[in-house]
């Protein structure tokens, strides 16, 4: 199970068991944060509810700081952490499609599954749409390959691209997060829709 040096010796079934527990925890957290409601997610775009930004930005920063501290203390080998290769075209096009789907459907894939599991009908249709999209992509991928494989940049890291150390980049991101948290609270006051937020 990857790079955590203390658990790299575990047998396969134990790794899968750990993955199961992490998955259960993740789903529970999503549901408890209210992410199984499409109105909460759409609130991010209209400004009346910015929980999504807070939760996901916090998650990113905890992961960033945590992995670096663990690596600093020699518990985690960051070299073994897989860095997703960067396909520029695919990222931009996919980002636009994902954003459009996000605002129209009111879910991202993870929260969609979370909402499905509490029996929301719109989430079922949403996920069905997602599967149809994946199927269409798989069927047409040979024809559009040149588009989505274009501008391949390899396993690129933003701190290396900016030429600053990882620690400094972390600090910059934290400052950005703190600023955005402040901004999002302002937005929540400015665009508040109590008739929606009281129901979520």
């Amino acid at each position: 199970m990857g790079p955590l040096s203390i658990i790299s010796e575990f047998p396969e079934w134990l790794n899968l068991l750990i993955a199961l527990f992490i998955g259960v925890g993740f789903g529970f957290a999503l549901e408890q944060a209210g992410f199984s409601s499409s109105r909460r997610l759409a609130g991010m775009f209209y400004g009346y509810d910015t929980t999504v930004l807070k939760v996901f930005f916090t998650a990113a920063i905890v992961a960033l700081v945590g992995s670096q501290l663990l690596s600093f203390f020699g518990l985690l080998n960051l070299k073994l952490v897989y860095v997703n290769p960067y396909y520029m075209n695919a990222t931009i096009i996919g980002g636009v499609i994902m954003g459009a789907g996000f605002i129209m459907g009111g879910y991202c894939p993870g929260t969609g599954i979370s909402a499905l599991s509490i029996g929301k009908i719109d989430a079922m249709i949403f996920l069905l749409g997602g599967l149809v999209g994946a199927f269409l992509f798989a069927e047409t991928s040979p024809y559009i390959q040149t588009i989505f494989l274009g501008n391949y940049k390899g396993a690129m890291r933003i701190d290396e691209w900016m030429g600053v150390s990882t620690g400094v980049f972390t600090f910059i991101l934290i400052v950005a997060a703190v600023f955005l948290f402040w901004l999002s609270e302002l937005a929540e006051k400015r665009f508040s829709r109590p008739e929606i937020t009281s129901e979520i």
């Binding site: 916090t58 920063i61 700081v65 670096q68 501290l69 690596s71 600093f72 960051l78 070299k79 150390s165 990882t166 620690g167 400094v168 972390t170 600090f171 934290i174 400052v175 997060a177 703190v178 948290f181 402040w182 609270e185």
Partner: peptide
Amino acid sequence: ARIKFSILLIGVGIMMAFLPFNTA
């Protein structure tokens, strides 16, 4: 809570910025 959380984050962030090297 936001201000408390921000103070925690900034504190950790400053420490991270001064970590002596890129461990990876």
